[in-house]
Design a protein around this nucleic acid. Structure first.
Length: 277
DNA sequence: GCCCAGGGAATCG
DNA sequence: CGATTCCATGGG
């Protein structure tokens, strides 16, 4: 990987396995949308960026050299060798196909509170509506950041009453959002401490929150803590796993979270491969 | 009207 | 433990 910095832009050459459209449209992040110029625009860590994907380079518009080194390098998981991981998937036919078709997916390392809150909202919900609820959450309670809004802090949400969340139209999830915010603010659930916990203990800590079960907890561990062994099972992964009655191949197990994201995206694009269940 | 969506809580046996 | 039911909302 080679980087250049100019005019508040970061230009990244030779980043293997990097495709902005796949990264932002594979169901892991809900706050990036493609604009009329084909750029993926969104806000994370209180900064608004536009990501342009070209064949030979990725450009982050709205980021300094310091931002890249302190925030975006980790956010895009550039420290992980995806080529090596995807190579370990090649002895499995389905994963080989999923990796070939979706080469370019990286698992983002997103903000902890945002990821927790977002995947609480995701339960028994569909992606377009999840994005809508989160958009309304940010517009109603987030800090203005240029042309966009930051994700509202747990502190701001914790001070609200349940009826304040009505404009989100999130239904029964409102009470879960509040419980999460209050437990995070009080320290009853310590999001920083989870960094030092095992994945299993991290799940237990997250599941102290009402509305957080195994699936949401595993999503948070995968998408906010970079736990490549976290394995969220939603309705789509449940379907694709019927094709693995003995479980995933041994060579894949340690990176099953990464495999999960490739399989999730693949089965959504090819639902017919596992529709008879 | 139906079914479904990146599920989980409450309740039952 | 597993199985069922309910939960709000919106799109197909």
């Amino acid at each position: 990987m080679r980087t250049e910095f100019e005019n508040n832009k970061v230009i990244i050459y030779d980043a293997s396995c990097t495709d902005a459209s796949l990264i932002f449209d594979c169901g892991q992040a809900f706050r990036f949308d493609k604009d009329c110029n084909g750029a993926w625009c969104g806000t994370a860590f209180g900064r608004h960026i536009k990501v342009y994907q070209y064949t030979d380079r990725t450009v982050i518009d709205g980021a300094t050299k310091e931002d890249f080194e302190k925030i975006w390098f980790d956010y895009f998981d550039f420290g992980r060798d995806y080529d090596e991981i995807l190579t370990s998937f090649e002895n499995d036919d389905l994963l080989k196909k999923a990796a070939a078709e979706n080469y370019g997916i990286r698992v983002l390392k997103q903000e902890k509170w945002e990821t927790l809150c977002s995947f609480i909202i995701s339960q028994n919900n569909n992606i377009p509506r999840i994005k809508g609820i989160i958009k309304r959450l940010c517009e109603n309670f987030g800090e203005r950041i240029g042309e966009d809004y930051a994700f509202p802090s747990a502190e701001v949400i914790a001070r609200l009453d349940i009826e304040d969340l009505a404009p989100l139209r999130a239904g029964f999830r409102n009470k879960y959002i509040l419980d999460a915010a209050r437990k995070v603010v009080s320290g009853e659930v310590d999001l920083e401490k989870i960094e030092s916990l095992s994945t299993d203990d991290g799940e237990k800590e997250l599941m102290k929150i009402k509305g957080v079960g195994t699936k949401v907890a595993q999503c948070v561990l995968l998408f906010a803590y970079g736990r490549e062994d976290a394995f969220p099972v939603d309705v789509w992964v449940k379907r694709v796993m019927t094709l693995y009655p003995e479980g995933l191949p041994e060579s894949v197990i340690k990176n099953r979270g990464i495999a999960q994201q490739y399989l999730f995206h693949y089965i959504r694009n090819h639902p017919e491969i596992a529709e008879n269940i």
